[in-house]
Design a protein around this nucleic acid. Structure first.
Lengths: 364, 364
DNA sequence: TTGGGTGTGTTCAGTATTGTTCAACTTGTT
DNA sequence: AACAAGTTGAACAATACTGAACACACCCAA
């Protein structure tokens, strides 16, 4: 590598990250710390960066070269905006999404206002109206209902007058109404990844358990079937079970899980994907109680990764990109508010891929 | 090898990678280091590059020709990466995409290197390998084939070692192989928008003409059917025609268009979407020749918007977001290269919505 | 305030790169 | 064939760059 290249690399790192650790960079670039320090010294002389203990930070914008600009009015006031966010729940699933949106908001220096609809359509609309009346500059919303088509909420969003990003819901069927963008986890793909992982471990029959009533269920089921089909397996509906929620009380639940496990074992299933990692933990317990070893006798992948790591057997899990969904949603909204940097006026629909975290419950 | 060729090679290398190592280049070109150094000296005198210890770096943009800038503190270039882009054609459809990628590249101060595969799989792979061998930092690629599944190109991309963004192609079926992201125009949605527009104008029977062999055809057809179905219309395959390309010569083409128009009129169709605006213009001529008024007697929406505005009757057109596709693809690639600003590691799949441009041919 | 740990710059020896010089070679001309 | 002009590659001394050792400066926690 040329010395010049090295310096370029340093500046690039600095431009992208804002700061640079000398030792870290040396290791990454495979050069000695001394060389890095010398480069930093050179570049600092040219005013291209500012040395600090341990590395360097990017030079202030206003001094692209060796120069001394005495700018008394430093603090640049960012144009502050307020983004409203409405989610159905602040306890299940969405905390991750909210954290992502918060992170992006903080970075961009905008304010995020949250509303929770508790899966009530009325409440949802009330929250949205409140936000709009208060003059927010953009909206992130996860409607309670799975499909937006023809709902009052859609009508409300369609002429909100501000950019709207729909989060974790489809806008396929709402294309004429307003300028909606969307960001979603690609749960179908998440399921496919899990199935492929299990097939690769040699399992021939893979079961699926889906939590009752969850909007995540259908796409996961679809992805599951698709992955099996691609692998040339016959479609077998009997391997898909619904994990019903306890109605009479929590003590009912283990019974449901037990029956599903029975059914799996009877069908020769040796691995399963269980939606909601909470249920997956229950399921694991059921396996262990029957002296089934996990993963040797039965492999398990949880769908969702809130508490999957905490079981007696840490569970492999598909982790939906919740943080990223929130983060990207806010960025897209902001991008649409802010004066549309060059090109890029087209409405976006973004799918984010979940990631598989392999833990004990599905190791080879 | 001619001295001129050598210099040409040097400049190309420089344009491609931004820097050049003299010894390395000498070895690769099979010439002595001395000769390389002499060439570099000559080119540096002409201002075509800047010598540095160990080799040379590309000359700053603003000095394209021989000039003598006596400024010892040369204007430093921005931190820079090189992105390779491979498209099947540089004349049809992709110029818009390329422009978008170029714009984003310029904004970000990175270098964009283009390769054209001419729809040849071999050429495509050769181009990709060339780019990778030359050490690009990221790849934007539109594979020649519609589906990536199981192709050698996919294998190549899967372990490219740098971020890869697939442009205008699906990666649905390639999820296990490497970390691919994608950006595409949502042609299905484009067709839906066009259909809804025509239905809204009161048309009850809407025809569709699809250019033969285009990868855009299937999604457009699917969107067309879906929009009609949503509107409660019966599915009628007889309203969909393929616009075959002239085989014997250009004089054959009007005949094809004429027959399609015949068929439409016989079926009571009063509006049509014609894929490729070029064919749409032909189609419009055919209408006018028969004394059909456009749009009063027959409304037309072109799919694609290259020359739709230029007809005797300016055509309404669905404009795929080509520029945006290129722009976003490059940004996504860069984002993945750059040190992953907080959050946001999840792989993205982005659909961009086409826009309907209403002109004379479909006004109320 | 006082240590221990970490980061910094100096020095120096080793290595890589550079430009000079010159001989060998190619090409076109006499 | 002989020559001049231009190009190329090898040898080599001068120079630039690199990494290791080491003494010192800085930061942080007790």
């Amino acid at each position: 590598m040329l010395p010049e290249d090295r310096k370029e690399l340093i500046l690039r790192e600095l431009a992208m990250r804002g700061s640079l650790n000398a030792a870290e960079f040396a290791a990454k670039a495979g050069i000695s710390g001394m060389t890095v320090r010398r480069d930093l010294a050179t570049l600092a002389d040219q005013g291209l960066l500012v040395r600090v203990h341990g590395g360097a930070v990017a030079a202030p914008e206003n001094s692209p070269g060796p120069q001394r600009t005495a700018s008394p009015s430093r603090p640049r006031r960012l144009p502050m905006a307020t983004i409203g966010m409405v989610v159905p729940s602040a306890s299940y699933y969405f905390p991750g999404v909210i954290r992502g949106a918060e992170a992006a908001a903080q970075e961009a220096g905008v304010r995020l206002v949250l509303g929770v609809s508790n899966y009530s359509v009325q409440e949802e609309q009330r929250q949205l109206r409140r936000l709009l009346d208060n003059g927010v500059d953009g909206i992130l919303v996860t409607p309670s209902e799975v499909s937006l088509a023809g709902t009052d909420t859609l009508a409300l969003l369609a002429d909100a007058g501000v950019p709207v990003v729909v989060v974790e819901r489809s806008i396929e069927d709402a294309l004429d109404d307003g300028e909606l963008e969307s960001v979603r986890s690609d749960h179908g793909r998440g399921a496919e990844i899990a199935v492929n992982h299990l097939l690769q471990l040699g399992h021939r029959k893979v079961g699926l358990g889906i939590r009752e009533g969850s909007p995540t269920g259908p796409p996961v089921t679809a992805g599951y079937h698709q992955a099996l089909q691609r692998a040339g397996m016959p479609r077998d509906e009997s391997l898909v079970h619904t994990v019903t929620r306890p109605r009479t009380g929590p003590e009912d639940h283990p019974g449901v899980v037990d029956r599903i496990l029975d059914s799996f074992l009877a069908a020769g299933v040796t691995a399963a994907i269980i939606h909601s990692d909470e249920d997956a933990l229950q399921f694991t317990s059921a396996c262990l109680e029957r002296r089934l070893r996990v993963p040797e006798d039965f492999a398990i992948v949880a769908y969702d990764d809130e508490i999957a790591a905490l079981g007696a057997v840490p569970l492999s899990a598909v982790a939906p990109p919740k943080f990223d969904v929130g983060y990207q949603a806010l960025q897209m909204c902001l991008n649409r508010i802010g004066g549309r940097r060059s090109g890029t006026g087209a409405l976006r629909r973004v799918s984010l891929s979940p990631a598989l975290v392999v833990r004990e419950s599905s190791r080879s």
